[in-house]
């Protein structure tokens, strides 16, 4: 089980959290103007990174807030967590 550092509450066991998938996926601002190809990419294509992956978690059984984490998917080690809306810290780019 992972120990996850919630930027608001501190370190807590994984069971308190829900996984939110890849981070920084932006919904197209004008869906009607987007091609089928790009819309499918937005809906379904994820990086599925082998290595450092930027992802969202939600502290569902704590503060309830979303935040982001950089995790190495080859070791499951979480490198850093940061608040929603912030950019990934430099030096640990996904």
């Amino acid at each position: 089980m992972l120990l996850i550092h919630c930027p608001h509450c501190g370190e807590r066991p994984e069971l308190e959290f829900a996984y939110g998938g890849e981070a920084h996926v932006a919904r197209p601002t004008e869906p009607a103007a987007v091609s089928d190809e790009d819309w499918a990419a937005y809906l379904y294509l994820r990086k599925n990174t082998k290595g450092v992956h930027a992802e969202r978690w939600r502290h569902t059984r704590g503060c309830g807030r979303f935040f982001n984490a950089l995790r190495d998917t080859t070791t499951d080690r979480i490198l850093v967590t940061y608040k929603a809306g912030e950019r990934a810290p430099s030096g640990a780019t996904p």
Partner: peptide
């Protein structure tokens, strides 16, 4: 499955 993506 675990909830998160992984290659471990």
């Amino acid at each position: 499955t675990d909830v998160y993506t992984s290659y471990t």
